[in-house]
Computed example of a mutant assay.
Amino acid sequence: MPVSDIADKSTSPRTHPLVRALRLAFAVLGGVALLWLPVREAGEPDFNLVSYFSYFTVLSNVLAALVLVVGAIADPQSERWQLFRGAVTTYMVITGIVYAVLLANVDVGGQGTWTNEVVHRIMPLVIVLDWVLMPARMRIGDAKALTWLWFPVVYGVYTLIRGPIVDWYPYPFIDPREQGYLQMAIGLVVLVIAFLLICLAVNVAGRLGRRWR
Rank of each mutant, 00 (worst) to 15 (best):
V132R: 09
W36G: 04
I161C: 10
R80A: 12
P13H: 10
V190W: 11
R20V: 05
F26I: 13
V32Q: 03
Q111C: 04
P38L: 10
Q111I: 06
S54W: 09
V153Y: 03
P172E: 07
L197T: 14
L34M: 08
W114T: 02
A7H: 10
L133H: 06
G141Y: 08
L66S: 08
V166I: 14
F47C: 13
A104N: 07
P17M: 03
A25C: 11
G109C: 07
Y169H: 12
T90F: 07
P13C: 10
M134I: 11
L129E: 11
L59S: 07
V189H: 01
G43I: 12
N105K: 12
H120E: 04
V106Y: 13
Y91G: 09
D142H: 12
G112D: 15
Q82A: 01
M123R: 05
P172Y: 14
F26R: 13
E41C: 08
L68R: 01
I165R: 11
R139E: 15
I6T: 12
Y99P: 04
G206K: 03
V67Y: 00
G141T: 13
C199M: 01
R14K: 11
R207H: 15
L49N: 03
A143S: 13
W36Q: 12
D175S: 02
A100F: 05
G141I: 04
Y169M: 08
M134F: 14
R139M: 13
V58Q: 12
W36S: 10
V101Y: 08
P172R: 06
A65S: 15
N203M: 00
G71W: 09
D8Q: 02
A185W: 13
V62L: 12
S51C: 08
E178S: 01
R40P: 06
Q183K: 09
V32I: 15
L49Q: 10
R20G: 01
T95P: 06
R85S: 00
S10L: 14
L68G: 01
V58W: 02
H16D: 13
I161Y: 11
H16F: 04
V153K: 03
P17F: 01
I198D: 03
E44M: 12
R210F: 00
L49P: 09
S51E: 14
A42E: 14
F84L: 15
A33Q: 02
L34T: 04
E41M: 13
I127P: 00
S60G: 06
L146R: 12
V3A: 12
L49W: 11
M92E: 07
N105A: 14
R213F: 00
M138K: 11
T115H: 02
V192R: 08
L83R: 13
F26T: 15
S4I: 10
D142P: 06
V58N: 11
I97M: 09
V126S: 00
A87M: 14
R213N: 15
F56G: 04
W114V: 14
V106W: 01
P45Q: 02
G43L: 01
L83H: 10
